[in-house]
């Protein structure tokens, strides 16, 4: 589904170049859920941006469903995103001037889906916000806003969902609820899930965890880890 080869990202600084990603090679299969973990500044979000085609690599390439991102311009990447990719962000990224319902309708409208309103309403119902459709983002709590964002992300039925610190701005209980929801719908829709987090609890629920440090992939472990950390069979191997 997603494959990278020698993926590098460098940014120019006053005192020379800074390499944020140092040659990443990964492969993510369809329907797999993968967590990218690591400390702040390890390059997690940069990697997510490159995987999703939001940013351009300095070297190397990303293939999504066999399509090389390096060969696409911004508009072609946008079309690819429209077709295959959904997002959930740490800061929710809802449009403040739109109601919850309108925010969910946005991608559907942009793709010219006919019954956008009904579909959007169904998804809001699915995330438990049937009563809040006409509320604006600033009238919703953080958890509610993130549920709207999840509804928006799944409404377009993407093949891949990228989530950037989806619980980063939420308290533990709310975060847990949001995660449950995310994984539930993910399972229902059979979406490939790539999420960036520094929250172990969230990472443990993924099929696989990729650990970044200083821009390099330093570890990979697979297998579910149950919430109490005892059951399941995680396999850790160095890279």
């Amino acid at each position: 589904m997603i494959r990278t080869e020698n993926l590098r990202k460098r940014v120019p600084l006053a005192e020379g170049e800074l390499e944020i990603l140092k040659g990443i090679d990964i492969e993510i299969k369809a329907r797999e859920s993968v967590a990218i973990i690591g400390a702040s500044g390890s390059g997690k979000s940069t990697l997510l941006g490159l995987l999703a085609g939001l940013d351009v690599a300095s070297e190397g390439d990303v293939w999504i469903d066999g399509v090389s991102l390096a060969g696409l311009d911004e508009d072609q990447r946008a079309l690819l995103r429209a077709e295959k990719i959904g997002f959930v962000f740490q800061s929710f990224q809802l449009l403040p001037s739109l109601t919850a319902l309108e925010n969910v309708m946005l991608p559907l409208e942009l793709h010219g889906v006919a019954n956008a309103k009904t579909l959007a309403r169904n998804f809001l119902e699915r995330v438990g916000l049937a009563e809040r459709t006409d509320h604006y983002p600033n009238q919703l709590s953080g958890g509610e806003q993130q549920r709207v964002a999840i509804a928006r992300a799944f409404a377009a039925e993407p093949a891949i969902l990228f989530a950037d610190e989806p619980t980063g701005n939420l308290d533990t209980a709310t975060g847990a609820h949001v995660i449950d929801l995310l994984f539930e719908i993910n399972r229902e829709q059979g979406t490939t899930l790539v999420l960036v987090t520094h929250e172990q609890r969230l990472a443990d629920r993924c099929d696989r965890r990729l650990r970044l440090h200083g821009g390099a992939l330093v570890g990979e472990e697979s297998g579910h880890v149950s919430r109490d950390g005892h059951s399941g069979t995680p396999h850790l191997r160095g890279v």
């Binding site: 999703a52 939001l54 911004e74 508009d75 946008a78 079309l79 690819l80 995103r81 429209a82 077709e83 990719i85 997002f87 990224q93 449009l95 946005l106 991608p107 942009l110 793709h111 377009a156």
Partner: peptide
């Protein structure tokens, strides 16, 4: 930026 992340091309 959000619209573009959702796949809208700049021409649109």
């Amino acid at each position: 930026a959000i619209m573009k992340s959702l796949g809208t091309v700049s021409g649109k």
